[in-house]
């Protein structure tokens, strides 16, 4: 698992730990997080991921943009897309 994939999956695990979801979320590359959790959990995931990126890379990388809550374009609708999105944000 790449460093970024580790960060994203650890972040999601931390968020889900305190979240009551109707059914357990099985994480694979096609998992749709956007439809599985509420908007506050998404903001929580952004915060958690940004915090872990800052701890590893030593700088703050803002992850939220106008696509995050877009029902059609959100990178969180597919876990592989989310990982690619985070990688792109770190590289920017």
């Amino acid at each position: 698992m790449s460093e970024i994939a580790q960060i994203t999956s650890d972040s999601l695990a931390a968020v889900l730990e305190n979240l009551e979801t109707e059914a357990p979320i099985e994480l694979d590359l096609s998992t749709n997080i956007f439809d599985a959790v509420d908007s506050f959990a998404i903001v929580d995931l952004l915060l958690e991921t940004e915090g872990r990126i800052e701890a590893v890379y030593g700088r703050y990388v803002p992850l939220a943009d106008e696509t995050i809550f877009d029902a059609e374009k959100s990178p969180l609708k597919n876990w592989a897309t989310w990982n690619a999105y985070v990688e792109k944000c770190i590289a920017a």
């Binding site: 908007s39 939220a64 943009d65 106008e66 696509t67 995050i68 809550f69 877009d70 029902a71």
Partner: peptide
Amino acid sequence: DGASVFNFTLQ
């Protein structure tokens, strides 16, 4: 619609 407002703000 919190998601729309969030997107609007960041856009």
